Simulated scan of single mutants.
Amino acid sequence: MNPELESHFDEFDKAPVIRRKLLPWWIKTFCWIFMIMGLCAIASLVINLFIPNVNLSLYGFSSNTAFSGIGAFIIAIMIFKGFAAYSLWFEKPNAISIGKIDAICGVVICIVSMFALPFVNNGHFMFRLEILLLVPYYMRLNKIEYEWDNLEIL
């Protein structure tokens, strides 16, 4: 082909490689749920300025106000989970690492809430079902990490 007639727009005709295709449907669904949850966490801070009680609960921890130690802890977790979901959905290069940290933190927090909270609150042992999704989430991210890191995004 004559170099003078070669189009410089040929690269736009290539189908883009999309990392999001590596994610299963259930992770894509939870990405949206956690992005919305992260926005709700930020909104709860603002709402709690005007309304005295904002009920927060995550991984077995709960609080009636965003401006307490437990409340700030829950808000921070929700925002981090939202950030991890955002990173995965928008195909950020470090999304898999952030997601794996999110999964590990979630498992650790669930274990603490299962074994430590019953002693503090004089309650009973309660198995956290979140672990049943956090472990496969971590395993799937671990499985797709190499391909995610080695895809070329146009």
Rank of each mutant, 00 (worst) to 15 (best):
M1K: 03
E4D: 07
F9I: 06
F12N: 10
K14H: 13
K14S: 08
A15D: 13
V17K: 09
R20A: 07
L22E: 09
P24T: 11
I27Q: 11
C31Q: 11
I33Q: 07
M35I: 15
I36R: 00
I36F: 15
G38I: 15
L39S: 04
C40N: 11
I42T: 04
A43H: 08
S44H: 10
L45F: 13
V46W: 06
I47F: 12
N48C: 08
P52R: 03
P52N: 07
N53V: 15
N53T: 09
N55A: 04
N55D: 09
S57T: 10
L58H: 05
L58N: 05
G60V: 01
F61G: 01
G69T: 12
G69I: 09
I74F: 00
I75A: 02
I75Q: 07
A76I: 10
I79P: 03
A84E: 02
Y86A: 09
S87E: 04
G106V: 10
V107R: 08
C110K: 10
S113V: 03
S113T: 07
A116L: 14
P118C: 11
P118R: 05
F119Y: 15
V120D: 05
V120T: 13
V120K: 04
G123D: 11
G123Y: 08
R128P: 08
L129T: 06
L134T: 08
L134S: 05
P136S: 03
Y138Q: 00
R140W: 10
L141V: 10
W148Q: 00
D149Y: 01
L151E: 11
L151P: 00
I153Q: 07
